[in-house]
Amino acid sequence: MLQEINDTNFNQLVILSKSNKPILVDFWAPWCAPCKSLSILLEEIYTNEYKKKALFFKLNVDDNPKYSDRYKIRSIPTMIFFKDGKKKDMHIGVATKEDIREKLNKLI
């Protein structure tokens, strides 16, 4: 299962991360059906392909308004791709494995 992050540890784990790996943050909510579909896909991709190459986190937008507002999350699911603490790319809505791979591979 992907690690859940929150408004308290987001800055430390994403912005100030010492990792040289790209970071994918999945902005989601428990009531969102498309979010559940994407979550299954992200789990699969992370476990089978990117565990050693990237970091994946989940942020519940209902419980964590600070970073949801900062990144202007208006529709979920939304994925933001970070590298070296900076937002590099974004995808709104459910994505295919190929879409996710393409965005991550540009940052690796």
Score class of each variant (00 low, 15 high):
103 K>P: 09
71 Y>L: 02
24 L>Q: 00
53 K>G: 12
46 Y>V: 10
107 L>S: 04
31 W>T: 12
81 F>I: 03
58 K>P: 03
16 L>R: 15
17 S>Y: 03
22 P>S: 04
85 G>T: 05
20 N>G: 03
78 T>W: 00
103 K>L: 14
73 I>T: 03
39 S>D: 11
93 G>R: 00
65 P>N: 15
76 I>M: 08
61 V>H: 01
105 N>E: 02
97 K>M: 03
27 F>Y: 06
30 P>C: 11
35 C>P: 03
79 M>N: 03
98 E>L: 02
93 G>E: 03
99 D>L: 01
71 Y>H: 06
3 Q>M: 08
33 A>L: 13
76 I>C: 07
51 K>Y: 10
50 Y>A: 01
39 S>M: 10
55 L>G: 13
52 K>N: 15
45 I>F: 10
69 D>T: 15
104 L>W: 13
100 I>D: 04
20 N>F: 10
54 A>D: 09
71 Y>M: 08
4 E>K: 06
47 T>M: 10
35 C>E: 07
95 A>V: 01
4 E>M: 05
79 M>W: 00
89 D>H: 05
18 K>R: 08
88 K>A: 02
28 W>Y: 14
48 N>S: 14
81 F>K: 06
92 I>K: 02
65 P>T: 15
105 N>T: 05
43 E>W: 14
28 W>D: 11
27 F>N: 00
29 A>S: 15
80 I>G: 03
50 Y>F: 13
89 D>Y: 06
45 I>E: 13
105 N>I: 00
58 K>I: 13
1 M>S: 07
15 I>N: 00
88 K>P: 12
91 H>F: 08
63 D>A: 14
105 N>K: 01
13 L>Y: 10
37 S>I: 15
43 E>R: 15
68 S>Q: 08
28 W>I: 13
95 A>I: 06
66 K>S: 14
77 P>G: 12
99 D>T: 04
34 P>L: 02
61 V>T: 14
58 K>Q: 12
6 N>K: 01
72 K>T: 15
64 N>T: 14
22 P>M: 04
47 T>H: 13
20 N>V: 09
50 Y>N: 04
52 K>H: 14
46 Y>M: 10
81 F>L: 11
68 S>E: 08
19 S>H: 10
38 L>C: 09
35 C>V: 15
74 R>I: 11
96 T>S: 09
85 G>V: 05
15 I>A: 02
94 V>A: 07
94 V>Q: 04
77 P>D: 09
28 W>R: 11
30 P>D: 11
94 V>P: 03
108 I>V: 05
55 L>V: 15
21 K>T: 05
101 R>K: 13
82 F>Y: 06
50 Y>C: 05
66 K>R: 15
84 D>Y: 07
106 K>Y: 10
62 D>R: 02
78 T>D: 09
14 V>A: 13
93 G>D: 03
55 L>N: 13
43 E>I: 07
87 K>H: 05
